[in-house]
Design a binder for these strands. Sequence first.
DNA 1: ATCCTATTCTAAAGAATGATAGAATGAGTG
DNA 2: CACTCATTCTATCATTCTTTAGAATAGGAT
Lengths: 222, 222
Amino acid sequence: MTGRSPKSELYDHFSRVGKALASPARLEMLDLLSQGEKTVEQLAGQARLGIKNASAHLRTLREARLVEARKDPPYVLYRVADDAVLRVVRELQALARERLAEVEQITRTYFEAPSDLEPIDVHQLLERLEEGAVTVLDVRPRDEYTAGHIPGAVSMPIEELERRLAEIPPGRPVVAYCRGPFCVFASEAVDTLQKYGFAAQRMKSGVPEWRLAGRAVATGER
Amino acid sequence: MTGRSPKSELYDHFSRVGKALASPARLEMLDLLSQGEKTVEQLAGQARLGIKNASAHLRTLREARLVEARKDPPYVLYRVADDAVLRVVRELQALARERLAEVEQITRTYFEAPSDLEPIDVHQLLERLEEGAVTVLDVRPRDEYTAGHIPGAVSMPIEELERRLAEIPPGRPVVAYCRGPFCVFASEAVDTLQKYGFAAQRMKSGVPEWRLAGRAVATGER
DNA sequence: ATCCTATTCTAAAGAATGATAGAATGAGTG
DNA sequence: CACTCATTCTATCATTCTTTAGAATAGGAT
């Protein structure tokens, strides 16, 4: 596996990136880190891993230069090193969805609510935002909203949605988004909203796709 | 590693693709297969692997649905299953080049001739083809030219170049291309051509990038 | 200084992957 | 119907990856 010719050395390096993407745990952590920087503890919790295990995977990711760390005592905050990482992960997921029938089936069964007839994409959301007649809800945990959200969106973590329905202007269409195409929060939100009579729709993608589409991302509390 | 929740099942499937991309041998074979379908024997020879080993890697790639096989007795011909595979491999290589300094350095040292000041890209080649005043040389092995080449290009495998120089119109700029950004044939060709007084340039990419850019690909002998 | 906390480092067992040899398959061909 | 050839399947061993436990580090806080 050690490179003798320049060519095999080159492919050895390419495979460093491939190896970093060869574990479900690391792919999930990359998805989580796409939402903004996180501590080891947050990552371990959200990906349901032990802390030591999460730390080991993070080391692998860091050695492949896909993530970077920053100290903010007493924490260490990890983040995705480059938008190119997001592009690769997104292409990999798109490929898996296209080529592996199981992925498409799981997606349909678990990540798209039955009522969820027509999720909209980044461009459609943009159009409707320009028309001005839509309420956009960010149903991710609040710290992910703070780290970066679609301008104009309201932070409404999924656990708070049901008791904060009064804050949503009635008679106005609502769009909910979460982390991306494989995040359940948005479909759950759409289900709840429709149950209470709102014209609700899910956005297929999340903030990372919004960013990659070249749109500005807002940070901070509100 | 077996999926319990839908989410972990999903990431297990994503990692199937990642695992397939986690070996230098498989990444090299994907690059070779991007040039057109090949037999196990051709692949093993071009990637310097044993036949059985190559076959085992091909099985892995096939199980991840990244390549497909077709029988043409007595041979089995392999091909890349989908353009999405090319996109992922390209993004992965771009990421490695951007994030891993070693890759950039190897590329500069071995894959770009010193005289090779300004390699052109797909769009620039297209412009110059439309102007009409450029000779395009395909310096890959002849069977790869046959499997698919840039319309108007002449097949001139690198081993034949030096004794076929008389066929190249003098006083006219020449562009040489091979398999892609990490293929040495084109730089070697540019060196040789410049030595004999031609105004020669290398194209950075190859037929796969041309295809992905939505351009038509010509097949057959000439 | 010493304590405290988050995190990494070290080490080791278990699981998965890689390379290769030998047997088996399977589709023409004589 | 056997023969031939390319290729795959099966089995093996060495290597690498994953996970987890225990020790060590680093940086504030007391």
